[in-house]
Simulated assay, not measured.
Amino acid sequence: MPSSFHVHDHNVHLKWDNAIPPVLTVDSGSEVSFDLLDGGHNQFTPASTSADVPNFNLALGDPAMGPVYINGAEAGDVLKVEFLALQTAAYGWTAILPGSFGFGILADEFPEPALKIWDLESHAAEGYAVFKEGIHIPLRPFLGVVGLAHEAAGQFSTIPPYETGGNIDCKHITVGSTLYLPVKVKGALFSCGDGHAAQGDGEVCGTAIETPMKATVRLSVEKGKPWVKSPHYVTDPLHSQTVGGQRGEYAALGIDADMREATRKAVRGLVEWLVGEKSLTREEAYMLASVAGDLKLAEVVDMPHYAVACSLPLSVFVGEQYQ
């Protein structure tokens, strides 16, 4: 059985920096649990109101817990991250952060602060939270921040997504899903955080249902997958009931400051996976992506980068040679 390890929420960092010493060293295949602060560094509590929003300190936003050093991981490898358990706190929050915060795709049209505190406990067994009377939101917990250290020296903000992961805010990577991240430094240096109870694609107002979370993942090093140049993921069977047919979907995330270029990177990533994993020609892969693939705006508010997913339902592969 794989070893189990734990990272506490005081093992927190606010920048990606490959000089940060690891808080744990584990072997490939180990399960690691995390106590995670929410995406606002737990600045809001169940007693908070809209009056507290102007005091929000953005410099504490999107904290990451870690890093974890994985033995055997080298630059050019891929870190496989399997999501085994994600447990929200009893509460969550969603905020409109106006003015100088600049969060939200319509930030200029919503100048007043707003805060909603969610009860994530009363209807957890039924799988939803109440937005207001008559509106129920399905609970689909996931982590907004999941990433590895950068190759370049220095500090990088945890707020935007990167090709090494980070604040990708992709709602499709839930329990049962698998994320693949390109390793840039020895040991990979994995960190995560920013628990979400639910989110729409794009996270358009700048926040999801933000919540502290307990997470358990399995971290495994994989070799020989050069097509993983950005985050790639496979969704879980439960997710596949509504997306991707009965077998889920495979997707590549394109990360860039230009949305068109992010989209091009996402499509290119899916094409390269189809060539490398399914042995299609580039022309076949490009056409298959066009007739069966989907584009999703996973993240559009964490400037300066956009995250666009290009996904393909795995149900299209019916031949034994593609299993």
Rank of each mutant, 00 (worst) to 15 (best):
L312D: 06
V318R: 15
L295S: 14
P22W: 03
K186E: 12
M65V: 08
Q246A: 14
F156P: 00
S4E: 14
A215D: 07
A309Y: 00
L84M: 14
F56Y: 15
V291E: 14
P113T: 03
I173R: 01
I96G: 01
S290V: 04
P237C: 08
H150V: 01
T164M: 12
F44N: 04
V221T: 08
W227V: 07
T94D: 02
P46Q: 10
E151C: 00
V12H: 10
Y286K: 15
A149I: 03
V175Y: 00
R218H: 08
A262Y: 00
F103R: 13
G127Q: 02
T263H: 04
F131T: 05
T164V: 12
K186W: 02
F110Y: 13
L120I: 02
P141M: 02
A19H: 10
V300T: 10
R282W: 12
Y250N: 09
L24S: 05
G165K: 06
A125D: 15
P2A: 15
A90M: 10
V308Y: 03
E112Y: 04
A19I: 03
F5T: 15
D17V: 04
A252R: 02
G102Q: 12
M65Y: 08
L106H: 14
F44Q: 07
S33C: 13
D17Y: 01
E210P: 01
M1D: 06
H150E: 02
V271R: 11
H8Q: 14
A252Q: 02
V221P: 04
S4C: 14
G104P: 00
I135D: 05
S33L: 11
V243Y: 13
P212W: 02
I173D: 03
G102L: 08
V183R: 08
F34G: 00
K132P: 01
P160S: 06
V7T: 06
G187V: 10
T45Y: 10
V23M: 02
I209C: 03
G176Q: 12
V204F: 08
A153V: 03
H232P: 01
E109H: 13
D201V: 13
H6F: 15
A309K: 00
A114K: 02
R268Y: 11
N55Y: 12
F103T: 09
E261G: 05
S315D: 13
D38H: 05
Q323M: 15
Q87M: 13
N42F: 00
P22V: 05
P138E: 13
Y69S: 05
V7G: 02
P67I: 12
M303L: 06
G319F: 05
L253F: 03
F190V: 10
V53P: 05
G244P: 09
Y250C: 13
G72A: 12
Y233D: 07
I105L: 09
F83G: 06
D52K: 06
C170M: 08
A188V: 08
G248Q: 01
L312N: 12
L58Q: 15
R247L: 15
A309T: 01
L179A: 09
Q241A: 11
G254E: 09
D52H: 12
N167C: 09
A125H: 11
M1I: 11
F103S: 10
L314F: 11
L36D: 04
L106V: 07
A107Y: 11
S30R: 00
I209F: 03
I96Y: 03
T216G: 06
S177L: 05
S315G: 08
L58I: 13
P161L: 05
L270G: 14
